[in-house]
Design a protein around this nucleic acid. Structure first.
Lengths: 209, 209
DNA sequence: GTTGGAGTTGACCATACGGTCAGGAAAAGA
DNA sequence: TCTTTTCCTGACCGTATGGTCAACTCCAAC
């Protein structure tokens, strides 16, 4: 019937299984860490025999690398929300929104990323030194421009970025702690309140309101 | 010579070795996570044969539990700095100072704690539900008091606490990322700048200046 | 419908891991 | 000095892990 799918049957299978495995891997790596995760458990979560994982990914490390790389892409994509903003209220506001949304939608990815960095970034050190460094320098300059324009108070742009990362990612990485204190997962309304609180405190904190 | 040490010789040895092992364990758990850490590596770092670890600690999990418990104590101790303050500037300012100092002096401990929580707090869930929950409720009430007194803007106290934790612990947990972006470890002066930046942004963010 | 390569998988392997233990060394008490 | 208790450790064990492989099925192209 759907001739659009017909010729890509093989690719389809491959793509579907790779996605399935990556999804399971993200979850297991987030829950157990790289060292604590086992290929067997990832296979079970994915619903595939272990040997099949090794057909698509040559090693545990390569699988892990792909998972981390995927997260970094999401992270970078959200970072674009800061651009083309007339000022800090819109730019940083949008960035906080985007990053809070990631914490909500991809908590496992966030945890894997956090874990990777905490352990000294053994597999993504090069990303940190190139892409992330460039991105950070660019946004720091952008923020400095807003300061020079008098659109916000003079704060150290680097430390502002660290605070943005910390405050937003905390809702994913420490989600379990928050849920425990909250007596359950955050509701839709509580998520909005979290977002608003973070935005209000930071925007007021940089004198942009 | 030192008769003060003489009668406690046995205890001395025990205490010293336990401390040595706990110190090594904290480092290794921080670097590799629970699953990635091995008793052999901890033993090597401590400079003791592996079998000796099992003389002092019956299992890897018990050793880990002790490490996490130690960190929680430090954490709780710092938490006291918020009490007996006349207002948010002093109370929250002191708390930020204390927590930033922990991030600087005990980065490994902070990482182990973060890792534990990220993995669902398998061994310290009871702490979260009792001690931490009580502490949080108490400080939230304290903050609410300051709000009612008009000493700061009305913000959600819980989310303020989350931001405090996030912003300060970030300098330990993501220290590797910060060091990479910074081109090396933070200097004494940079640490002061970090502390001042966090304090300035948050205190202004809650309208307490 | 036959052929070639992609996809699949149970069985298997070498290794590394947490943990044990017997027996010796060192310290404390008598 | 002799005895008892604590401390120490090399050698060892069962298990679980990451990874391999040969045999198989399924799909697409001719």
């Amino acid at each position: 019937m759907s001739e659009a799918l017909r010729p890509a049957r093989r690719n389809e299978i491959r793509q579907q299984n790779e996605a399935l495995i990556l999804q399971a891997a993200e979850k297991v790596f987030a829950e157990a860490g790289f060292g604590g995760a086992t290929m067997q458990l990832i296979a079970d979560v994915a619903g595939l025999p272990k040997a099949n994982l090794h057909y698509y990914f040559t090693s545990k490390e390569e699988l892990y690398r792909k998972v981390v790389s995927n997260i970094f892409d999401i992270w970078l994509h959200a970072a674009e929300s800061m651009d083309n903003a007339p000022g800090p209220v819109e730019g940083i506001g949008a960035y906080i929104d985007a990053k809070m949304e990631i914490s909500r939608r991809h908590p496992d990815g966030s945890k894997v990323w956090a874990s990777e960095v905490m352990h000294g970034a053994p597999v993504i050190q090069d990303y940190l030194e190139t892409t992330l460094r460039d991105w950070t320098a660019g946004r720091a300059a952008l923020i400095q421009g807003w300061i020079d324009d008098g659109q916000m108070v003079a704060v150290n742009p680097d430390h502002l970025l660290y605070m943005l990362w910390a405050a937003t990612q905390h809702y994913a990485d420490f989600g379990h702690q928050i849920e425990t204190l909250n007596g359950g997962p955050l509701t839709e309304l509580q998520w909005r309140e979290a977002k608003d609180s973070v935005k209000a405190m930071i925007l007021r904190g940089i004198g942009a309101v």
